[in-house]
Design a binder for these strands. Structure first.
Lengths: 191, 191
DNA sequence: CATTAATTTCAGATATTATTGAAATTTCAA
DNA sequence: TTGAAATTTCAATAATATCTGAAATTAATG
């Protein structure tokens, strides 16, 4: 596939950006390529376009699928598997957030709980300090986990609505003493 | 500094966890060490405790300071610089979020805007597709940026309030048709 | 079935990133 | 000032993560 300058720049940028957040560069480039491609692509074409090995594509595709970020899109009368991304950026964000909660946050919460259960020597002042700080961290993580849980049950439309309201509700929430503006009317629509 | 098992486990875990989010392992271990240390530590002691070189500590400390995650805590009659972390996990989170917006999100937004300005060839259907998708991504990023801007102006107490409300306001916001529960009373308390 | 296309696996090679040690620089007490 | 302590710099090295090619496996076709 011949990429336009815009496509090329975006694919490279997305690869670099994803790295900063702990993703593999090639993985992200594949995702970006599929995102800016009007058609679903097969593994061979991905490899050629990005100039990477076929095996790298195979591994990366599996990983992307494990995040739910790409899906196989079979074509009639074609043995090859074609892949495409989600269209909705909100859904993409939601998937990553939920998956990170499952893969990273939950294990940390579990570990912190274990550590706090094991170390309850009230006599040792250092231990008391450690306990206090780990409790504080656990609390933050549990809040994040709650947020993720909430996200899990939010439809794309609902997330969109929240985003489009520019979080004015949050602003209200933390500035309760100001004269309350009229309640924003939300238009829930099913998808 | 001799670490307890709890401290040791936490420091190692924090290092691994941070890596998954694009941070350097040692950087995070230093941060974790300071977080569970009852006293501010000097660079030499950090190096010994974590068994890493003095120069590595120096580099990592500078980076941690650039995020605002640790501060120098000078001691009277001592030439060495001692370092300590923030106590508030919320403040830590806020700093990281704001810094990431500045370092990662803003440049991406800028790039996407440039790409969208440059590529406005309505005749080319591929270009139209790319434009549509990049616009959608830009929108998401701009929302995230707005959220970060909001966060910038939120005090630790306000963030705490939001977190402690378990985001019930968000839940209300996206489910307006249910009978509204009585407004949650927030208890702002100093620590 | 046998054949070929498509995909996956994985040990070894490569590239990237992190770390070190030695030297340079800075800081500060005397 | 001076010099010793503390810190930083950076080129060389080590550790880590990523990628590849060849071989194995799986799936589809006639």
């Amino acid at each position: 596939m011949k990429l336009s300058d815009t496509q090329k720049t975006f694919v490279l940028h997305w690869g670099e950006k994803a790295m900063k957040f702990g993703f593999n560069r090639t993985l992200a480039q594949i995702h970006a390529l599929l995102y800016v491609s009007p058609e679903a692509l097969d593994a061979e074409e991905i490899a050629e376009t990005l100039q990477i090995s076929r095996s790298n594509v195979s591994i990366s595709i599996r990983e992307l699928q494990s995040w739910g970020l790409i899906t196989a899109a079979p074509k009639m009368g074609d043995r090859k598997t074609y892949y495409e991304t989600l269209d909705s950026t909100w859904e993409m964000f939601r998937l990553v957030a939920i998956e990170r909660q499952k893969r990273e946050l939950a294990p940390s919460i579990s570990l912190l709980r274990d550590l706090l259960l094991a170390g309850n020597d009230d006599a040792d002042p250092t231990q008391r300090h450690v306990t206090r700080r780990l409790e504080s961290l656990l609390q933050l993580f549990e809040h994040a986990s709650t947020l993720s849980e909430l996200l899990k049950n939010l439809s794309v439309d609902q997330v969109a609505k929240l985003l489009e309201s520019n979080f004015s509700l949050l602003e209200q929430a933390v500035q309760p003493e100001e004269a309350a503006p009229p309640a924003r009317v939300l238009h829930p629509e099913e998808n």
